[in-house]
Amino acid sequence: MNKKIGITSLLLILFLLTVFLSLIAGGNEIKAGDVFSSLLNPDTDSVVSTIVWKIRVPRIILGILVGIGLSISGCVLQAILRNPLADPYTLGISGGAALGATFAIVTGIAGLSMVSLPLFAFTGTLASMLLVYYIASRYNFSVYTLILAGVIIGFLFSSLVLLIIALSDTNKMHSTILWLMGDLSSPARGLIRIVAFFVFSGLLMLLYFGRELNILTLGDEKAQHLGVNAEFIKKIVFIAASFITGACVSVSGTIGFAGLIVPHIMRWFFGYENRMLILMSALGGAIFLPMCDTLARTVIYPVELPVGVVTGIFGGTFFLVLLLKSDKTRIF
């Protein structure tokens, strides 16, 4: 128990450190001192203040929110699918979002307003979610049907994305691919509030059903014998995780790996109890994504890397080390 408190404290320090570094890191030759004075005096009209308040702070907040959202979605989907390899995109959400976003970019609708692309992406996630829900419901929401439906719908939508990309011109192709790799920059304020709403209400809902999630990892049959309505819990969790993921992806693009790796690292430290694990995955996600994003925009400055590339390389390497250093039984 003391060990867990110790690690939690370390993670909280790491979180503050990440936010701090993320605020001062970057180009524009801004001094750390200036960043803080503008943070303390939000009303000043200087260039530094504008950069901090209009660019960096929203970006960090979005990074934290999306990090939390993807990590907790991954965590609970791994539980209901009883599969440690599940992630927020296993159930086709990313395919739907990508199709909506690609359509908006290629048709030029994306350029009309700040919210048109996210709106189309979110519509796409709703479409894929409804399709997967409909297919899985026909088979009592069994784990295999759910995964199969998710993978099929995901593939179908991704193929349509590729079709549209193949038919579009180079410029639009480039924008689409960059969107697909994830981008946390310059989100509109209103969008951040919407993402925050989905992420935090989803977080509360998933915590509420945390103890059922523990039982559900024993399989439907045993869960039902212990008094859990397995099908109902799977439906609720699927819907909650889909809305959280959909909201995140619509604003930030399909950032990979965070939702897979963060719950694993947290299981390593905190065990398998899902209430604890959901909370700690939230904390882990709030560190992991802003950290990757800070790296993405500083490592080969002035060129900015897509954050999805950094989460993949950074997360993948970390995971690989963990896998190679661990004893075999503990990793999952």
Partner: peptide, 19 residues
């Protein structure tokens, strides 16, 4: 009983108190 997530034996038996 297939257990994809490796709970401790104590945690596992505790699940019997669920109802």
């Amino acid at each position: 009983l297939d257990t994809p997530f490796s709970f401790t034996v104590f945690e596992f038996v505790l699940m019997g108190r669920f109802p």
